[in-house]
Design a binder for these strands. Structure first.
Length: 739
DNA sequence: GGCGTAAGACTTTTT
DNA sequence: GTCTTACGCC
């Protein structure tokens, strides 16, 4: 396969710009890599090139966006170099940081086997924090508090730094919450996702010697998807490459879609300022899509102002025209897409070559139903993952407690599962004892006489105590055996089998699946421990476990689709309020991110792109009317073909824009829609309402309309009144007074 | 003091 | 439509 004598760089299949980017070795380097321009190829070639030049793999730090990308890149590098690349630091920022924190976290007060809290664990902890601080839950919701704290952490701002900087009651309150939340995390030897990044930064900030050690430990710092790095990741990169400045970043500002998670497009746009003497390469030749698709995507993204100048091109001329379909409702949309897929799949085009991409997970439902109905195999990427199921989380909570007995969140999750007569009062008395001993709940339970806790729950406590005593003895066994013991000693399996319902049978099946997954994992990683399994399971992402199946159509969100490609792509639900999302529609910066999301979706397609929007969509059990996405109206008509299928005859219409006027934001007005005979009854609406409209109610006073749902006699209005209450009213009974 | 039922909130996107 | 929370019952 490999010609002897030729150097590796000659064997790499690269165009001139790609090649220049791979061999450049003169300091900071930024590669703008548009969609489909061979970004992964450049990155893997670069790593292979460095290794071939004699850089030990262990001296390369390469951050990718998903674990899947890391796995694939490792394999490709091994293919290119022809040898295993032991010791290469490649992974997501989160997993690379965990690796550093497990080694060095002691100086931050963490044991090596600390627990990683996922978002539901975070929520449990935050609820506890707000309760203990007696924060009025009307002024601050747990989610809101977590969101703000997450922003602080992504910016590496400690609660200490906030001190003295905050004013106002809410901020003072929040600071207390932030402090308590962090204090509890540390007491429980747990970190949330944000901590993994920020704590690594704090570790290096606070320890010059350690920083120097890691600065010389890594000779090269490579970052994929640079446009989606946040402030913490940026600082980490800067710290690690501080000595040698050998930093190589690849990204595409047009594909920055994680701003809501703290990612900063500025990182890529101001890279040259941050790292002087940067050499910039621009990959603009697209090898993925047809010209028709690329023109459509280019035109959509051209509306954005905040972006680096560039223009993707391809020498693949022509291709099938992009189509935009209009459907009556989301059911028709799903059904028609399913039918079209069924008829287009053949020997050359398999289900696995096709993807249906949507903005929100909720949209997947109608497609799942339609695919089942038409017997089309599909895989849904994401949604509620296996490891988020209650029974799986319960099992994992037991396992976590064996690894880390300080983990009170896990303890509270399972201390009465299966039910053993322990409730709030029992927890209260144990908590009090734990506070007195300055110890965790489980450790307290194990160390004290159960009879000291309330008389009523003694039996339960002594049962629980002996369960964990027995489990402790098993902690030296293989992870698989430990899980087995958990399931049987805790009574969890008995609980499910005794119940005997269909649901509990499903749960048993899931647990068996977990058990075999753990067994298989142990087989593949004999040297790894239970703690490693728990870590992997927590840091796993939706796409990580996705594998293209030959015949299964892929259903996923636009975010999940990043980095993937499919021959045929269906971009569905292109409506105002969906994309751009309702909560981002009034904000210019956020709307630009939504447009990039559309761009990401469109550029996933290789041969055929089919877009759609619907007139009405079910939401919360109500039928909501929608209008085509504003993004569509900025794309020149000649770049796509519009097909109105909302009346079931699917006649082709010459023009998109002339038939479907762009309507003002969120107005609900039947008459603005093009004529649709079957829906004439809408016009019976006698009163018109707008989102945001101010109204005055006889009883509740003044307020503002937040949402309108249903139509005709069923129209419901959600109104936020000035007394702070949110009420849902039937429009026809509302009888608002004139203002 | 725990357990079951009904109203209530709720959906953007995820490591 | 689904998951969470509050309340009343046993």
């Amino acid at each position: 396969m490999i010609k002897n004598g030729s150097s590796l760089v000659d064997r790499l299949v690269l165009n001139p710009v790609q090649r220049d980017a791979v061999v450049y070795d003169g300091g900071p380097e930024l590669v703008f890599a548009g969609a489909g321009t061979g970004k992964t190829r450049v990155l893997t070639s670069k790593i292979a090139y460095l290794i071939d030049k004699g850089v030990p793999p262990g001296k390369i730090f390469a951050a990718t966006f998903t674990n899947k990308a890391a796995r694939e890149m490792r394999t490709r590098v091994e293919d290119l170099t022809g040898m295993p690349v032991e010791g290469l630091w490649i992974g997501t920022f989160h997993s690379l940081c965990v690796r550093i924190l497990r080694r060095e976290g002691r100086s931050l007060g963490y044991v090596p086997h600390f627990t990683i809290y996922d978002s539901s664990d975070q929520l449990s902890l935050m609820k506890k924090v707000l309760k203990s601080l007696e924060v009025d839950d009307r002024s601050m919701s747990p989610r809101q508090a977590l969101g703000i704290i997450s922003n602080y952490k992504n910016g590496c701002i400690t609660s200490g730094e906030l001190e003295g900087r905050v004013s106002g009651f809410f901020e003072q309150e929040l600071l207390k919450v932030y402090k308590t939340y962090q204090k509890l995390l540390k007491e429980q030897q747990a970190m949330d996702f944000d901590d993994l990044l920020s704590n690594t930064v704090f570790l290096f900030r606070g320890n010059e010697e350690l920083l120097r050690k890691y600065q010389s430990f890594f000779d090269y710092v490579l970052v994929d998807e640079y446009q989606d790095t946040n402030a913490a990741q940026f600082e980490l990169i800067k710290l690690l490459s501080g000595r040698h400045r050998r930093i190589f970043a690849v990204g595409d500002d047009d594909q920055s879609i994680y701003g809501w998670r703290g990612a900063k497009v500025e990182n890529i746009l101001s890279f040259e300022k941050q790292f002087p003497d940067t050499k910039v390469f621009k990959l603009e030749q697209n090898y993925r899509s047809t010209k028709a698709i690329l023109s459509f995507a280019n035109s959509a993204i051209a509306e954005n102002h905040y972006r680096a100048a560039k223009q993707l091109w391809t020498d693949r001329s022509g291709g099938e025209q992009v189509t935009v379909h209009r459907y009556r409702d989301d059911r028709q949309e799903a059904d028609t897409v399913a039918k079209r897929i069924a008829s287009s799949v053949n020997g050359k085009l398999r289900g696995g070559d096709i993807a249906v991409l949507f903005r929100t997970n909720a949209q997947s439902r109608s497609f799942e139903e339609a695919f089942r109905k038409h017997k089309i195999p599909y895989v849904l990427v994401g949604g509620t993952g296996f490891y988020e199921r209650a029974e799986i989380k319960d099992c994992l909570a037991y396992l976590r407690l064996i690894v880390n007995p300080c983990d009170n969140v896990s303890f509270e999750r399972v201390f009465n599962v299966p039910a053993r007569g322990l409730g709030d009062k029992a927890l209260e008395s144990l908590s009090a004892a734990a506070a007195e001993k300055n110890s965790s709940l489980l450790e307290t339970l194990l160390s004290i006489d159960a009879s000291l806790l309330g008389s009523r729950c003694q039996k339960g406590f002594s049962d629980l105590k002996s369960i964990f005593e027995l489990l402790k003895e098993k902690s030296g066994c293989s992870p698989h055996e430990v899980l087995h013991s958990v399931l049987h000693l805790s009574g969890y399996m008995d609980m499910l089998t005794n119940e005997g319902s269909e649901e509990s049978l499903g749960r048993v099946e899931n647990i068996n699946e977990l058990s075999s997954a753990l067994g298989a994992w142990s087989g593949e990683n004999p040297e790894k421990k239970l703690a490693d399994f728990l870590e992997e399971v927590t840091l796993i992402s939706d796409v990580d476990s996705w594998e293209r199946k030959e015949d299964a159509v892929n259903l996923m969100t636009l975010h999940c689709a990043k980095g993937l490609e499919f021959k045929h792509v269906f971009l569905v639900g292109l409506e105002d309020g969906i994309i751009p999302s309702r909560q981002n529609i009034d904000d210019e910066v956020k709307t630009e991110e939504e447009r990039r999301l559309l761009y990401v979706g469109a550029t996933r397609a290789m041969e055929k792109l089919e877009c759609s929007h619907v007139d009405q969509r079910w939401r919360f059990g109500d039928l909501l009317r929608s209008s085509p996405s504003r993004f569509l109206s900025s794309i020149p008509e000649e770049l796509f073909q519009f097909k109105d299928e909302s009346s079931s005859f699917g006649q082709i219409q010459a023009s998109f824009q002339s038939r479907t006027p762009v309507r003002p934001v969120n107005t609900v007005r039947q008459t603005e829609m093009p004529e649709r005979p079957s829906y004439d009854d809408f016009s019976q609406d006698t009163v018109e309402y707008r989102m945001g409209q101010h109204v005055k109610h006889k009883v509740y006073g003044r307020g503002r309309i937040l949402q309108i749902s249903g139509f005709g006699d069923d129209m419901k209005l959600t109104v936020l009144f000035n007394d702070g209450a949110r009420r849902k009213l039937m429009a026809r009974f509302a009888n608002f007074e004139s203002i």
